[in-house]
Structures are given as C-alpha cells and as structure tokens.
Amino acid sequence: MTMPGMYVSPEQLMQDRADYARKGISRGRSLAAVEYQGGIALVAENASSTLRKVSEIYDRIAFGGVGRYNEFDQLRIAGVRYAELKGYQYSREDVDARSLANQYAQMLGQIFTHEMKPMEVEIVVAEIDVDGSAELYRIQYDGTVADELHWCCIGGDSESVLERLAEGWAENLDRDSAVRLTVNALAGPDRTIGAEELEVAVLAADSGRRCFQRLDDSEVEAILVQ
C-alpha cells in the first residue's frame, strides 16, 4: 500500500495495523467460553438481545465474536456457509472446528496483510465432541490461532478475566456453575452484571443433533440467583 513519495517500513506498517485493530477490539466488552461436564458455556456482555455475539455454526460448533459487529457477523455467516457446504458435500460428521478455525485464520491473515484495513475482531470457535470433551480455538485479528484448554476469553479486558477463570475452574463443573463462574469472571470483583446485560448460550453434548441452545433472560436470572 505504499504511495509515491512515501516510504513506510514493513515493520511499521504491521505495527500500525495491529495497533489499529487492538484499539478497536479493546473498546468492546469481553466474551468467554468455559468447558463444563458435557458441554461448553459461552457468555458475553451484550445489552442488545437481537445483535448477537454468540451463535450457532453447525451441529456441534458455536461461534463467538467481539469487536466490530458487522465484521465478526460477516465471519459468522462465512463460517455457517463453510460448514453447511462441507456437510453437504461430505457428511455432517466431517464438519469440525479445527478446520473451520484454520479457515478463519487464513482469511484473517490474508485480510491483515493485504487489505486496506485489518478486521477489528477477535473470535472463538468452540466444538463439543460426542463424548462431551471440548475444543476451543481463539483467533485474532491477524490470523493468529491458539488452541485453548478448558476456557478462553476474547475482547478488551481478557487478561484479568482469564486469571479469574483459572482460579475458579474445576474438572467437574456443571452447566449452571460454569455460567456463574463465567459471569463472575467477566464482571470482576467490583461490579455485578444483570441477566438482561448478558448473552448466554451453551453447546450441550446430550441435546440431540443440534447442540447449540440459547438461555433466555429468565433462565440466566434463575442460574445467577442460585
């Protein structure tokens, strides 16, 4: 993207783009995904009940995105298309989170280096296996993929949230405790988040073909008061 008469070093260019993307992402609230026995809970702070941050991709795969809404929603739709096409062409069992995460990484990496502006997003791809074990992938604005164990967090304040999740996570969490843990980790010690400010969904291994389920405000409220 050099213009006549101007020179910007590649290091500087990449640095500028990364700063730009990070600034956009850090403005938004965090989203966390946490494994529990037989499922994965995905929790986001989201005042809107129509513009979703957490969504269904396929039978056992969910998507979470933070940052610029129109950009991560484009990624969500591309993911649904990728999964549906693969399932149509081969079989439903051949659709997996690992290959989808790699596709996202390719795409975000390509956009980061070749387009005018990087995507100001960070996403998580979660999959619950038939035996109830979880796979979590975190993908950054520049295409960096990380394979996370048991929990992960994306968005502005993720480091302190991750610390709180590490402290509270245990092997035998049930669904409700996992949701409570995640909400408390997102909130931190100094504030509480009400059900209407939350978007909560789970991938439950034992709920038939389509594992993705949203929990509505009243269900979340009931979980939080326990």
């Binding site: 591309a78 298309r81 549906e84 096409l85 989808l100 596709q103 390719q106 795409m107």
Partner: peptide
C-alpha cells in the same frame, strides 16, 4: 471445496442455500 466462502456486498448469495 478449498477455502471459506466469503463474498463482497454485490455478490452475496444471501439466505438461499
């Protein structure tokens, strides 16, 4: 199928599978 299907605004197939 090789890569993730990503469309520009003009050529997006919308909700039609």
């Amino acid at each position: 199928m090789s890569s993730i299907p990503f469309f520009g605004p003009g050529e997006d197939p919308g909700t039609d599978f």
